[in-house]
Amino acid sequence: MTGALAALIARDVRLALRAGGGVGAALGFFLVVVVFFPLAIGPDQAFLRRIAPGAMWIALLLSVLLSADRIYTADFEDGSLEVMALGAAPLEVVALAKALAHWLTAGLPLAVLAPPLGLMLNLDITLLPGMIAAMLIGSLALSLLAAMGAAITVGLRKGGLLISLLILPLYIPLLIFGVSASGAQVGGASLASSAMAILGAIVLLAVVVAPLAAAAALRAHLR
């Protein structure tokens, strides 16, 4: 079972890193969204500093969502999912592996890219460690939910549009606690750490619920 998990993660990471895998596209999109904020709002340094954590989180969220569509599409269309459904490992493990692979190729690089982009938005440097930590944790839940949305919409016409509609409401708690944990509010350190704890709790809930829901949806689509 862990063999299947590791094999699938390794394969998906390899596929993502090869040409056309989409890691570059997600990173580029992240960059573009972050750059749009000062261009739209104006170069006022104090104001940018205020909105920086929120802007970074919006960029992260949209970048993860952009790459969600591709999580299951290829495996569904080329028949790989059918073979996986007959493997020794249950589809819940497959769903977990797909989400973890997505996190490794989307959430993780985006969180690593965050510090230099944060400086472009005049982000308070003391907030950086907290924000990177919050993004690393939070993006894990973002990937789990994105993978669930991808499983629900796999094989549907206009699946990409539907994912956004289904998943955005579920992203709202992550956005709120993620930005809070990044220390955007004046509430101080204690507030940031409790937001971080809640963020962790949501991740744990997502680890349990998202693969279950994704596997159920995949079974329904394979019929």
Partner: peptide, 21 residues
Amino acid sequence: ANAIKPQLSVAENLRFWAAFH
């Protein structure tokens, strides 16, 4: 459907399915 990844080599495709199973 053949359950093949075009981006992987022939050997890599088989290696993945062997590891997965």
